[in-house]
Computed example of a mutant assay.
Amino acid sequence: MTRTADKPSAEFDDRAGALWDAIVRGDEYAAADAVAAALDEGADAETLLLDVIAPVQARVGREWAANRLTVAQEHTATAINERVIGTLAHHPAVRRAMERHRGAPRGRVAVACIDGEWHALPARILAEVLRLRGWQVDYLGAQVPTPHLIAHVHRTNPAVVALSSSIATRLPAAHAAITACQVTGTPVMVGGAAFGPGGRYASRLGADAWAPDARAAAARLAAGPLPQPPPVHRAVDDLPHLADQEYTHVTRTAPELVRRVLAELESRFPAMADYTDRQRRRTAEDIAHIVDFLGAALYVDEPDLFSGFTAWTASILVARDVPAHSLLPALDLLAERLVDHPRAVGMLARARDAVRSPLPEPTDLPPGGASDVLA
């Protein structure tokens, strides 16, 4: 089974449709049977991973963002897709194909999600693609604390560490993990939506390579070894703008910022007077996310990251019948609290403009990037 970007095959559409129908029903067995049947018929395992399972998972995210799937349905669908990948990995046809590489693997790769990153499916798909390509893969899963990652690197000595992150608030943790791996002499490849369009934040954080998807990651590793990192990597030199302490201030005072904005918000947005307790809790969560993304944008000095997130948040709210302009008072209150921090104030001003502009279609993940399959 093959598929090109401009001409999907009918076979691809049928198999993706069957998998979609099964996961929407919450029928794990039907989903697993659909993939097993495709393998029985001779379908290519990598193509199933990247052109069936991954697009179906992306559709799950889009449907949640558009408020056509509940959070529970989205979690169920994701859990089923994880089990489906397990079915594929253990299918006899796939096991036979992998046996050909067992005696002479290309090398060892550790695949892990950044500490705090719970979107594990992209990393799992990358791990399976690399195994199919003949690599010995240590898949460490979601939310891997950096000290444990480094302990694993010291114990197993992989040729490469592949790090995945989908949410930009994890970029500071990604920077720490990249640096810690490089100190051991191990090169790092990164990927996922957190690293921005075209992987723009990957180089800023000192990664040795970036790939937009699992195919590209596998091709880059097959092309030759990644360059060895320098013996001493000075992370502070990567981001000289952090000397202004704005990132430090915003992150250290985040709980207080959220508390004060929430306390003053009703006077700026009178509709809050009629909010239920649940709506007030959701508002507090939204403000906390705004502050977290502002911190991430300050860390990489990227105003578009924050304005993109704010526009995305507005689109998610609109899909749930909450007016986009309800975000503006919170942004104003944050700007007043951070008046002595020019980078933050400038980002908040751009975010206000983004909310007033035509909003993007809601997607499962905020910019930068869609839920691409990588690592």
Rank of each mutant, 00 (worst) to 15 (best):
R100M: 12
D244F: 03
L327H: 00
S9F: 03
M1W: 06
P360R: 08
G199C: 13
D208F: 04
T184S: 12
A235L: 08
H75L: 15
D115K: 09
Y275S: 09
A284H: 09
T70Y: 12
I167Y: 10
V300D: 01
D244H: 05
S203L: 13
P187T: 07
V373D: 01
Y139S: 01
H325P: 06
L262E: 13
L334N: 05
L221S: 01
H75C: 13
A314H: 01
L239T: 07
V300K: 02
Q182Y: 08
L374Q: 06
V300W: 07
R68S: 12
A5G: 02
H241E: 14
R59M: 11
E285Q: 14
V160R: 07
A194C: 08
L257G: 02
A142M: 11
P8E: 04
P227E: 10
L50D: 09
A344P: 04
A214G: 04
A319M: 02
T184P: 00
V300A: 05
V161P: 00
C181S: 10
A174K: 03
A254E: 05
A217L: 01
R106F: 00
D51R: 10
Q279Y: 08
A43C: 12
A177P: 07
R59C: 04
L265W: 06
V144R: 10
T87H: 13
P362S: 14
A219D: 14
A168L: 07
A314M: 05
R280A: 06
A243T: 10
H154L: 14
P270D: 04
G134V: 00
R204M: 12
I150P: 01
T4S: 15
A193S: 15
V35M: 15
E246A: 09
K7I: 09
A177R: 06
D138V: 06
P358M: 06
H101F: 14
S326M: 08
S165K: 02
S164I: 05
D277E: 11
G224Y: 02
A31N: 08
G199K: 10
T4P: 03
T276Y: 11
D13K: 15
D340G: 05
L294G: 01
G295N: 06
S9L: 11
R352P: 01
A93E: 14
T248R: 13
D6S: 12
A296V: 01
P197V: 15
A174Y: 06
T76V: 13
M98P: 00
P358A: 03
L365H: 05
G191P: 04
V183M: 12
D13H: 11
E117S: 07
A194V: 06
L262Y: 06
G192Y: 03
F309W: 08
G116E: 09
G134Q: 00
P270Q: 09
A36D: 15
A296E: 01
L265V: 00
H233G: 03
R25T: 07
A31G: 09
T70V: 11
G141K: 08
G206K: 12
L149H: 03
I290D: 11
